[in-house]
Nucleic acid binder design. Structure first.
Lengths: 321, 321
DNA sequence: AAACTAATACTCTTACTGAGTATAAAATAT
DNA sequence: ATATTTTATACTCAGTAAGAGTATTAGTTT
């Protein structure tokens, strides 16, 4: 007799990482359900009500906060057993799909996106080691010590070497060695090294020092995936413009890219890049709110996507802070 | 009263795109179930038997063909209603997850990977427009005519312009304009333009000319996703070496990269790149099977991944055929 | 008026790509 | 046995872009 369908059925959770730009802070939406509990907006997929997963994600966001989303993309499908406490009580198997979405820049201007009903929290409060805009984050000295400790206690030499190689690659100490895209990989290394509260919940252990705000379930992992994907995406697709208002100064644009990538950029080279690719054009107006010489206002030229095969933003980074 | 769990439960299908290198043909595994029917290896996820999705994928592959896999990665989760005919008959909702895996090069040498029980089919028999190794594929003249026709029949001018822009971007006629990574995007454009059999099954239409071998369900779409991902991946992660035997000549390596990307490369520049990045080192031996001057044998230097932050392969392409 | 803040213009070195030419060392064809 | 073909390998040269600056301009704030 073949398997009964019950043996195969699972429940799908949809989780949304929604990013917004609140100059100079990059934020994401936290579900405002219980105080002191940080969850991504999420919902159980309702196959009877929605034709596609994306439709359900849109509805989920609309429902909990009337938001105008721009770019949206699927991140990853996580299927590990034991991520949801309900399962342990004999509930159904959970598989969760993460989505990344961007809140349109004009939506911020026009809507109540930052009202009290929505909690928009600073991304880097959850990943303090990822923000290099003011130079190397202080927390990295403690992290590196703890990681070295962890590697030193490896069971054998081969394992020890491998761990040190990973640490070196992910947490290299100079700006040149820092690869800002590896957000998820760094989170998972810290998780393995018992430096993330989420991994210690059942172990009766304590953190040696605070390592960012924890989240429910595996939501901080999904958030890490989202930030990593966004950092990689801005380099080969001009998604940043969705987060910007329709007209902006080049310094504002630079600040946004810096906020997302967590890296300071070289101003002159950044401008040279934008000119070369033709991604922006002057509106003709100037902004007087600069506190210095007034700046030209620019708008995004959507046509470049059709004209050029490859309008890359290559993050002209600054090694010295 | 809250929803019953039944309203939420779905069945997950796991689909594997398994790539192998059979010099000079890049192949993928087709399930050998019924003749003249082309399916990817797939299975229903069994949440009671496996702790993770990946474990189930591995088991699925092992079961149907004893294969030694190297790299494996998740591609995408497809949740559109109506992809599986079973659903129409009141069956459960299907959500399918695609995976990409590579058959280890040494596995080919040592195993029965290409035996009669496994059907390894030429990738480009399913996507004849994607193979530019011998210059522009002949089928592209027909495709471009049909696409222009399709755009010309758009309902309004704006729509017409948009369609032409997409065609130009995806099917640009010169080597310089061709972006080999956009395999999925091209497949979906052809699908929309009714040039893919899979989209016509219920429409009682016929193809104007054959456009590659069709597959069951949406498996050709998943295959397109896999090829596109692999083409993009080889540029920033040295995954190609998994498909190669442990020692090889540089021309063999170049042929593999060309086969996967569908593009001819400039030999001297390709070698210069490999030298500069230190990705390979000579074994000291030479191959006499070249039919010309004997070639040095090389092996992959796994250490580069630790040494260098970014050992890119940048496809030094050849514009003239 | 001096100090500060930012915008904008320009330079210089280095790295890498695209596209070759030239030569060497073997196999195969005549 | 010599010519032709095949492949490997060495080297060149122009063009593009990145990294890291200096210098100047045009406003605000003190």
């Amino acid at each position: 007799m073949p398997d009964k369908p019950q043996n195969h059925s699972v429940v799908i959770g949809l989780n949304a990482v929604i990013i917004a730009w609140d100059d100079p802070v990059p934020r994401f939406l936290v579900r405002n359900k219980h105080k002191n509990i940080n969850e991504l907006p999420f919902d159980v997929f309702q196959p009877l009500s929605y034709r596609t997963l994306e439709e359900n994600v849109h509805a989920l966001v609309d429902d909990q906060a009337k938001l105008e989303l721009g770019y949206i993309e699927q991140l990853y499908t996580f299927g590990n057993r034991g991520r949801d406490p309900q399962e342990e009580k004999g509930g159904p198997r959970f598989v969760s799909i993460g989505y990344l979405a961007l809140l349109l820049g004009k939506a911020i201007e026009e809507s109540n996106a930052f009202s009290e009903t929505n909690l928009w929290k600073d991304i880097y409060a959850f990943f303090p080691w990822e923000d290099w805009r003011e130079g190397q984050p202080a927390i990295l000295t403690q992290i590196n010590e703890s990681l070295e400790d962890w590697a030193a206690h490896a069971t054998n030499d081969h394992d020890k070497q491998e761990k040190r190689a990973r640490i070196q690659k992910l947490f290299g100490k100079t700006t040149k060695e820092w690869n800002e895209e590896l957000v998820l990989e760094r989170y998972e290394l810290l998780y393995e090294a018992d430096l993330i509260v989420e991994s210690l919940r059942d172990k009766n252990q304590e953190l040696p020092f605070p390592t960012g705000i924890p989240m429910e379930y595996d939501h901080r992992r999904i958030l890490a995936t989202g930030i990593g994907r966004l950092r990689s995406k801005i380099k080969y697709r001009p998604v940043v413009f969705e987060l910007m208002p329709s007209s902006f100064t080049l310094l504002q644009l630079q600040h946004l890219v810096e906020a997302l990538s967590g890296i300071k950029l070289h101003k002159q080279n950044f401008r040279r890049l934008l000119e070369r690719t033709g991604m922006v054009e002057p509106t003709g107006e100037v902004s007087e709110q600069t506190g210095g010489r007034p700046a030209q206002l620019y708008r995004f030229r959507a046509e470049v996507m059709a004209e050029r095969q490859d309008p890359n933003i290559t993050l002209p980074s600054l090694s010295n802070s």
